[in-house]
Design a protein around this nucleic acid. Structure first.
Length: 566
RNA sequence: CGGGGCGUAGCGCAGCCUGGUUAGCGCGCCUGCCUUGGGAGCAGGAGGUCGGAGGUUCGAAUCCUCUCGCCCCGACCA
């Protein structure tokens, strides 16, 4: 590929629309251009990277026994009505009518279509297990697209759907996919972790998210450095509190705390730490108030509370809702005399002689104790895990890390097969719904995540397997016959050997070529310039390390070939 | 949808508040000279319905109304 003849519109300055580094760099390096909000065109270099990711995905999916298909992007609304998701999915599902006034939608995902395909064509346990995947453009009408390819409305996704006859078989399929995903992201050259995730509204027994580790990631992960434990913050379990030494219970006392409402103000006033106070927070769970008791320095994890209560929606109550529900102004709420259902975080049980709101304006109690002063019937792990917590499996200290979700695997069970009546006959002639799983990889997001994880101030630094090309050759003497001949012959020989090479044959000054080569992040760079003219040497530089070596021209081909095709 | 901000040349911006010749600047682009190992220099040049529509005015990039698009924060999410 010749730089001069390829559409690589590099930009010297950062486009004002971009906020995150992958977005900025993809625009600057001429990988993508925006058409409209959340919708991007892929230019040659961007597409080359996507193709490399896709190739790895295909190879590993095929190796895991999955078969590639390509499903329609335009889908009939009736199918979505049948699964019940036409209502549930909400405005993220882009709907429209065709010329015959038929209701249609753009596929944000393909559970319905695949289940329809399978129910019409697979009827026997003999055909199972079946695992079908596709690499397709999805459209989700996101409320707020942002961060370039990281959260576009249109994006490329690999999605696979598995169909099994028994739970054990489905479990095996799930494990195969988990293994395939490990191989895929490893082969992409990315640092990642698989974490336990909340199954969310999809339900099902379990789910793992594959997270590319990057400081700029949107999600926070909890990782144990000693054992294999890794989880999403939403899911991360907190160890039950240690049953410490019991100390003597002090008498409960009421103290005036005028105007002290926030934890910080109360503890400062009482000269105690937040760990010696139990705060009472009111949440509205599907419209009904619930009081949550929590150690002063902890925070509620709403998803845990939601799951514990079996609620669809959980929200922190407003001050008004608090007062209406309890008759006490927020800030002085306490468990004693609480009129509404209460639930305590487990950690509260380990506390003694702690402060609480008195349930009366401008007063708190000190030296309160569970059991003596009030009862808690329901306790659970409800709080957000912190850096001070210990691994729930092995007890080691935990690390919190940022990550970007690039893959998600779910065991779906029979949710969709039952809704769409997708059934088969088992060996006993019994009709049964397929046991399904679904497995997604955000292909375009992988590219963005790779940049978030691998870049420096000069530009991208692509891992070799997914780089648009492995090598760029800089001709620093386009007006020098000797240098040009050498660069051109090197280029054509390597291309003949089947290697993708970008030849910078532009009539630009050396500085510009170096800057662009860095920006594009191509792993290896060969410079043919004045050192060649004088001494017959070309410079080989590694983008990641910045290390360079001078190599006699005659040895370069072999050296390159070894490095790039190990 | 709520809050904030921005649309002026391919990119980044100034000008707008306080209306007044031909709308500027840097980068990029084209031509020539010169230069050639980390985004050189000189000279010349092309490129604008000032997002769009309507209004106020002798006169609108500038003031008013409407509208479209984009970005950021929040709720939501691969």
């Amino acid at each position: 590929m010749r730089f001069s003849q390829t559409l690589i519109p590099t930009l010297r300055e950062n486009p004002s629309e971009a906020e995150v580094v992958s977005h900025k760099l993809m625009l600057r390096a001429g990988f993508i251009r925006k058409l409209s909000s959340g919708v991007y065109s892929y230019l040659p270099l961007g597409l080359m990277t996507l193709r490399h990711i896709e190739k790895i995905v295909r190879e590993e999916m095929n190796a895991a026994g999955a078969q590639e298909v390509l499903l329609p992007m335009v889908q009939p609304a009736d199918l979505w009505r049948e699964s019940g998701r036409l209502q549930k999915y909400g405005p993220e599902l882009l709907r429209f009518r065709d010329r015959h006034e038929r209701e249609s939608c753009l596929g944000p995902t393909h559970e319905e279509v695949i289940t329809d395909l399978v129910r019409n064509n697979v009827h026997s346990y003999r055909a199972l297990p079946l695992n079908l995947y596709q690499i397709q453009t999805k459209f989700r009408d996101e409320i707020r697209p942002r961060f370039g390819l990281m959260r576009g409305r249109e994006f490329i996704m690999k999605d696979a759907y598995s169909f099994d006859d028994t739970d054990e078989a489905a479990q095996l399929t799930y494990e195969k996919m988990r293994y395939a995903y490990h191989r895929i992201f490893t082969r992409c050259g990315l640092a990642f972790r698989a974490v336990e995730a909340d199954t969310g509204t999809i339900g099902g027994s379990f789910s793992h998210e594959f997270m590319v580790l990057a400081d700029t990631g949107e999600d926070t992960l909890v990782i144990c450095p000693k054992c294999s434990y890794a989880a999403n913050m939403e899911k991360a379990a907190c160890m039950p509190p240690p049953t410490g030494e019991k100390v003597a219970e002090k008498p409960l006392a009421k103290v005036e705390t005028p105007g002290k409402r926030k934890v910080g103000a109360v503890t400062e006033f009482l000269r105690i730490s937040a760990k010696e106070l139990v705060k009472t927070m009111i949440f509205m769970a599907d419209g009904k108030p619930v009081a949550v008791l929590l150690r002063g320095d902890h925070e509620v994890q709403p998803v845990k509370l939601q799951n514990f209560l079996g609620a669809v929606e959980v929200e922190l109550a407003t001050d008004q809702e608090c007062f209406t529900a309890t008759g006490v102004p927020s800030g002085y709420l306490g468990p004693i005399g609480m009129k509404i259902p209460m639930v305590a975080d487990r950690e509260v049980l380990a506390m003694q002689n702690f402060a609480i709101g008195a349930g009366e304006k401008n007063y708190h109690f000190i030296n309160a104790n569970v059991g003596r002063d009030f009862q808690v019937e329901r306790t659970a792990d409800l709080r957000l895990i912190t850096e001070d917590d210990r691994c729930p499996l092995c007890g080691a200290g935990l690390n919190l890390t940022r990550g970007i979700e690039v893959g998600h695997i779910f065991k779906l069970g029979t949710n969709y097969s039952e809704a769409l009546h997708a059934v088969f006959l088992d060996s006993n002639g019994q009709e049964k719904p397929f046991i399904m799983g679904c497995y997604g990889i955000g292909v375009s997001r992988v590219a963005a995540a790779a940049i978030e994880q691998n870049h420096d101030k000069d530009g991208m630094i692509w891992p070799l397997p997914i780089a648009p090309l492995p090598l760029i050759i800089l001709n620093l003497g386009v007006n020098d016959e000797k240098i040009t001949t050498a660069a051109e012959s090197l280029y054509s020989e390597l291309e003949e050997q089947g290697m993708d090479v970008l030849l910078d044959d532009r009539d630009e000054r050396p500085g510009s070529k170096f800057k662009d080569a860095d920006l594009l992040g191509i792993p290896y760079r060969l410079t043919v310039g004045k050192k060649f003219a004088k001494e017959g040497l070309v410079e080989l530089r590694t983008r990641k390390t910045g290390e360079s070596v001078d190599i006699p021209f005659a040895e370069v081909r072999d050296k390159i070939y070894q490095m790039i095709n190990p």
